[in-house]
Design a protein around this nucleic acid. Sequence first.
RNA 1: GGAGAGGUGCCGGAGUCCGGUCGAUCGGGCCUCCCUGCUAAGGAGGUGACGGGGAAACUCGUCCGUGGGUUCAAAUCCCACCCUCUCCGCCA
Length: 461
Amino acid sequence: MFRKRSRRATLPAVAGGQTTGTVAAEAPTNVHPVIDLRRIRTEYDVVEAALARRGDATAELGEVRTLDARARELGAERDGIRAQVNALSKQVGALRREGDSAGADAAQAESRALGEREKVFAAQADEINGAVRTLLLGIPNLPADDAPEGAGPADNPIVKVVGPGDDPAAWAEHQRVPHWDIGTELGILDLERAVKMSGAMFTMFRRQGATLARALCQAALDRNADAFEEVRPPTVVLTDTMVSTGHLPKFVDDAYHLERDDLWAIPTAEVPLTSLARDEILAESDLPMRLMAHTPCFRREAGSAGRDTRGLLRVHEFDKVELLAYAAPTQAAQIHAEILARAESLIADLGLTYRVLDLCAGDLGNSAARTFDIEVYAPGVDQWLEVSSVSWFADYQARRANIRYRPAEGKGTEVVHTLNGSALAVPRVWAAVVETHRQPDGSVRVPGPLLPYLRGATEIR
RNA sequence: GGAGAGGUGCCGGAGUCCGGUCGAUCGGGCCUCCCUGCUAAGGAGGUGACGGGGAAACUCGUCCGUGGGUUCAAAUCCCACCCUCUCCGCCA
């Protein structure tokens, strides 16, 4: 049932043409361009320099500038003619009422001629504007000024390490067992049968393993309920909803698509939560608006076959609790820090060792301006596992999703900022918990924050 | 899935039959001012979004569910689609 593409997908063609989908020419209707076009007009060099820090897309940017200038010329031409047509049409009505049918006929003929010219300009302007929008949708966000310099994962500065980290001396032999072995041994993870049902990279938790997975989500929700509204959104969404966050059109191949109904399985709750306020104007007093959701997440993980795919390291479906906020630009930095602190504190309280990375410009996700990754160290597999990406998107997503707010002072509307991060992603945290807290006798001690949810159990054996 | 009704501004609700004087009557809300010892009531005015131009005042364009069409001119006529409500059917 899940297919990666639809024959009737309404995606704009992606610049560069590297997407393989049968992608229709029409662009999504409710989705607006991305980087502020006005910035491209007025501060072209700044925008170009920022994009260059990603090592990305500056050619498209130049094309956007050229096309946009042309589209504006054509649009001005079109509007001028349209104004004349409107004026003449009013005259026709007035003249008819006065009984001057000769005058009316003349005005009508003139207006008709103008209308023909207008159509030409309008068609050209539409075409060019469509091309601009398509290009824009493919251009990533500008990195924040304070995002570190760098080209890829190797350049991400480690902001801090909490706990012993990957120091070999810090870990005992009984903790050096991979979670898939622990899971099988205790009967709490049944990967073989999951594969039987759904294929590779699908998982199944059983007995206290399933309880543990649910407990993780429950704990994540409960500890953030002081400030975040709990939401249970749909997990299958329309194309526009996927485009709003930046997951489409660029990453078609990473998403599951229900072809028959042209719906997409969400890769993260960020997708529906970001569209919650789509096309709305919020009051400034509503900001920051904090939301959290526990949802399944679906990822095709195209192109990662064979890489880190053992056990729970990389799976097609997993549960996650996501924290998300809409904020006024001035609030964004503080909310970013808050979401990071909340995500960190749960990991810390689970007794896991972790580190925080400040993603460099070249490693930033498509939509993000600044991202901190939390990586947990899993001693059994001896790997750092990314368990949360806490990102500030500035106005990039909000522009796509057309989410604005009305400032309390002054008039007009402003585009909001969006931020989000995982409070908890189940499989990798599950793996790290089970490996970290494995006891010499092979049982797994339940860490404190989860005790309320394990039906009285303090250990899994 | 079938039948019927409907979708208009922040909200309610006219206008659609008979196209022009309709970006849109009226009421509510909200904002400013007046009146008032305070509050309520009352009076006057104002109140959208988006794009282009402009230093600004302002101005041009677009927006009546969405997309197309007819016309000199569309909220109004035509076509397709979406959504909501009511009834029927089907069900967890």
